[in-house]
């Protein structure tokens, strides 16, 4: 009887021992449950523009994003115009990240000789994990000054007539690694419009999206819908642009086709005249290069 008891005891001990050595298989688990982290959505777009529109991406704090943007002439100019390459409007853009959520920028375009500036603030940042937030939300406020000589020099012209303002909300969701969709309602205010049939305030809603094709190439598209055609000139059309983002280390090349000539909000929202069906399409590009001006405090 004793022998049997002993045997049972030994077996029991051995079992316990085996189990405890099994428990040691996953050593890290003895430190307890891992603290849940918040994962913020990043790289929803390759850069801070979809094509003409601002994207939900912010330039990182202390980083200057310098962009050179071109829009060539209409493709339907044919060989005589080298399919538009004979004409080019260009814009220089300087975007700077003050904090991780606040970005400001200035630009100058030769088309209508416009200077513009804006501030963009991210209020909500899409995240999962400890903190859950389904979307990202940013607000953009901008101003543009058209410095081109007034068309009618005989009438009394005011400086304020040169000013344009815009307010935009960027509402975006990165659905997965490949697809991001952004909705952008805008209010554009024009101090001076070309005829009394137009409205000073132009309300529009835009939809933009990014679909990654490879790790470094993405397909982008954006469409801006004017909520009321009577707000703008009869010749004005909705802006539609489609293009590719190509990332090469420190640069992002955005190559695209668009029916908008202007690269400033007041232009591409309210004064797009190109008609895609007639081939009024501009080839264009944005070339972005980032410079780290303020090194973050990382102890290496």
């Amino acid at each position: 009887m004793k022998k049997i008891l002993n045997l049972i005891l030994i077996i029991a001990i051995q079992l316990v021992w085996t189990f405890s050595s099994f428990a040691q298989e996953d050593l890290l688990s003895i430190l307890g449950e891992e603290e849940e982290q918040t994962q913020y959505a990043s790289a929803s777009f390759k850069t801070n523009r979809i094509i003409n529109l601002h994207s939900i991406e912010n330039t990182a704090a202390g980083v200057l994003d310098f962009k050179i943007a071109h829009r060539f002439g209409f493709l339907n100019g044919g060989l005589y115009e080298m399919f538009g390459l004979d004409q080019a409007s260009m814009k220089l853009i300087f975007d700077y990240g003050i904090t991780k959520n606040l970005q400001v920028g200035v630009g100058r375009t030769n088309f209508e000789k416009i200077y513009d500036g804006y501030a963009k603030y991210r209020f909500l940042h899409q995240s999962s994990g400890k903190k859950n937030m389904p979307i990202s939300l940013s607000y953009v406020a901008g101003i543009a000054v058209k410095t081109e000589k007034f068309a009618d020099q005989t009438r009394k012209n005011y400086f304020t007539s040169r000013l344009y303002y815009h307010h935009q909300l960027l509402i975006a969701r990165k659905f997965n690694n490949q697809l991001t969709v952004q909705l952008t309602p805008s209010l554009l205010h024009r101090n001076l419009v070309s005829s009394s049939s137009e409205k000073n305030d132009v309300y529009s809603i835009a939809v933009g999206a990014r679909q990654k094709l490879t790790k470094r190439i993405a397909l982008n598209a954006e469409y801006i819908y004017n909520l009321d055609a009577n707000q703008v000139a009869a010749s004005s059309r909705n802006s539609f642009s489609v293009g590719f983002d190509i990332e090469t280390g420190g640069h992002v090349f955005q190559l695209h086709f668009t029916n908008s000539t202007s690269m400033v909000e007041k232009g591409f929202i309210a004064e797009t005249v190109g008609d895609w069906t007639k081939g009024d399409i501009h080839f264009g590009f944005n070339l972005s290069r980032v410079f780290t001006l303020v090194q973050p405090k990382v102890k290496l």
């Binding site: 990043s42 790289a43 990182a60 202390g62 980032v290 780290t292």
Partner: peptide, 10 residues
């Protein structure tokens, strides 16, 4: 943590 934000993203 990288010194350059773009490096970190890449």
């Amino acid at each position: 943590q990288f010194e350059k934000a773009l490096m970190q993203e890449h």
